[in-house]
Computed example of a mutant assay.
Amino acid sequence: MKKNLMLVGVCASVLFYCSCSGKKEEEKEEKTNYTATSPLTLDTSFTKEYVSQIRSVRNIEIRAQEKGFLQNIYVDEGQNVKAGQLLFKIMPKMYEAEVLKAQAEVKASEIELANTKLLADKNVVAPNELAMAKAKLAQAKAEESLAKLHLSFTEIRAPFDGKIDRLPKKLGSLIDEGELLTTLSDNSQMFAYFNVSEPEYLNFQQSKSKNNTNVSLILANGETLGSKGEVETIEGEFDSETGNIAFRAKFPNPNQLLRHGETGKVQMVIPLKNALIIPQKATYELQDKTYVFVIDSKGVAKSKEIKIGGELPDLYVVASGLQQGEKIVFDGVQKVKDDEKINFKFIEPKQALSQLQLKAE
């Protein structure tokens, strides 16, 4: 009985020793499982998205130029119209009467001038009276032209090809001079306005080429517009409050998919010089902030917040928080604890990037 108990005790001791040895071996293996690398400095570029406001190349308000009742509406909301097409007519009766009156005055002045000229030729009247008759005729013709102009204002036509917006007034409405009747948008091409920071603006200008003036447009449903756009112009001044400057890109719109007032995201290639690049897998996020583990000279891993300036496939461009030459944990980030002393194997930055599934261009 005693021999059996001793045998059981010995076996238990052996198992406990093996278990402890195995655990220590695993811990040792876990400690040596880390790899580290450093940021890589290089010239590159990345694609960044900017919230944009989409505007028609031409968008104007159509307003009444004369007062009166809205007699006819020849278009409907959302309708495409051609330049010169009749859109509205404001009751023209009064203006037609003014034209007839002016025409009658012109006729009377012409007769008066003819009679005066006849008398002047016979030296019956002074030359000044002939001059006054001519001036009176000129004045009558001017009044006629003005009356015709007012009459023409009762017919409102499209100044260019475009699409009609909402019609706030209905037939029979009393229209005041200057009152809004609708808006007209030329959607043949569209502008996208977006704001760019000062550093990105400088990088864009210093390495300006056809490649980085071409931009894409992501629509509100997440789809990409089939046609590429081009950055055409940049605003003259920076916004003193935001530090940004407005860019304007023009996009073709052959299918009339884009409308005035839409929103989207412009994707533009931002060139970077001496950019600090690290693998995304070397980072972790906490409360919307990005961190890495920096390894000090004693092998202690310390958590450090960094700011991301851009994103490439599998890579981050570091804007601040990290210096060239600093060692960071590459593999095993999720296992490391802050202020933990670790054993690690250092691999060169280029070798670390070559292990990623995707490569930066």
Rank of each mutant, 00 (worst) to 15 (best):
L15K: 10
S21A: 15
G22W: 15
E26W: 07
E26C: 09
K28S: 13
K28F: 14
K28P: 07
K31D: 10
T32Y: 11
Y34W: 05
T37I: 06
P39G: 01
T41W: 10
T47S: 11
Y50V: 04
S52T: 02
S52I: 01
S56Y: 04
R63H: 10
A64V: 03
V75I: 13
E77L: 08
N80R: 15
N80M: 14
A83D: 04
G84Q: 00
G84H: 02
K93R: 08
K93H: 09
L100Y: 03
Q103K: 03
A104I: 07
A104E: 07
K107M: 09
A108K: 13
L119K: 03
V125P: 00
A126Y: 04
N128V: 09
A131M: 11
M132A: 12
K134V: 06
K136C: 13
Q139T: 15
Q139I: 13
K141C: 02
K148T: 05
L149R: 09
T154E: 06
T154C: 11
R157Y: 14
R157D: 13
R157E: 15
K163W: 05
I164K: 02
R166K: 14
P168G: 01
K169W: 09
S173K: 05
D176P: 05
T182G: 00
T183H: 07
L184C: 04
N187H: 10
S188K: 13
N203T: 14
F204N: 00
K208R: 09
T213A: 06
S216C: 06
G222P: 04
G222I: 05
G226N: 14
E230A: 14
E230K: 12
V231G: 02
V231N: 07
E235L: 13
D239P: 08
E241W: 08
E241Q: 13
G243E: 01
A249E: 01
P254N: 07
L257G: 02
R259A: 03
G261M: 00
T263G: 02
V269L: 04
L272M: 05
A275K: 04
I277V: 11
Q280V: 07
Q280A: 07
K281G: 00
K281C: 01
T283F: 00
Q287V: 07
F293T: 03
V294E: 07
K298C: 08
I308E: 05
I308Y: 06
G310I: 08
L312Y: 09
Y316S: 04
V318P: 02
A319E: 15
L322W: 02
Q323M: 14
Q324M: 05
E326C: 01
I328H: 06
F330E: 03
V333D: 06
Q334A: 15
V336F: 03
K341D: 02
I342L: 01
N343C: 15
N343S: 15
K345F: 12
K345Y: 14
F346L: 15
I347W: 02
A360V: 14
E361N: 15
